[in-house]
């Protein structure tokens, strides 16, 4: 299996590995799985309640190099974005950035799922219902 250089870099130096306080109202947690391969990914975000900017992101992934790289990249990308901006990240963006081969596309899907799940959890905690309602700056 030939991993791209970017995958190897993220795999060897994963960014933002760790955990945030799950109980905090500012933290959203996404725990998702890819049944095709049995990989599991947890991605957490800490959102500034005033600006809705994601100030902190952490992940922990049980899976292959591509899954780890995809989640590492996802945490880098969501940081500094608003919740709504982060929802625009597509798995295909991750595929492109990491040059993932077709058999590893599901890893990028998992990362997108994790972002959505984390944001979904944060919205639920904070009673944010509709995506359009968040466009206050």
């Amino acid at each position: 299996m030939a991993y791209s250089e970017k995958v190897i870099d993220h795999y060897n130096n994963p960014r933002n590995v760790g955990q945030l306080d799950k109980a905090s109202t500012e933290v959203g947690t996404g725990l998702v799985g890819a049944p095709e391969c049995g990989d599991v990914m947890r991605l957490q975000i800490k959102v500034n309640p005033d600006t809705q900017v994601i100030e902190e992101a952490k992940f922990k992934t049980i899976g292959c190099g591509s899954a780890i790289a995809s989640s590492s990249l996802a945490t880098e990308w969501v940081k500094g974005k608003t919740v709504e901006e982060a929802l625009q990240i597509k798995n295909t963006d991750i595929v492109k950035e990491l040059s993932l081969p077709p058999v590893k596309i599901h890893c990028s899907v998992l990362a997108e799922d994790a972002i959505r799940a984390a944001i979904g959890d944060w919205k639920k905690k904070n009673g944010v219902a509709e995506p359009a309602a968040a466009a206050v700056n």
């Binding site: 725990l31 799985g33 799940a117 979904g120």
Partner: peptide
């Protein structure tokens, strides 16, 4: 993505927690 929601997980969350 189209609906702007989180994806429904196929496997129950307990299972994922257990793996973790």
């Amino acid at each position: 993505r189209a609906a702007g929601t989180a994806k429904q997980q196929i496997v129950p969350p307990d299972m994922l927690e257990e793996v973790f």
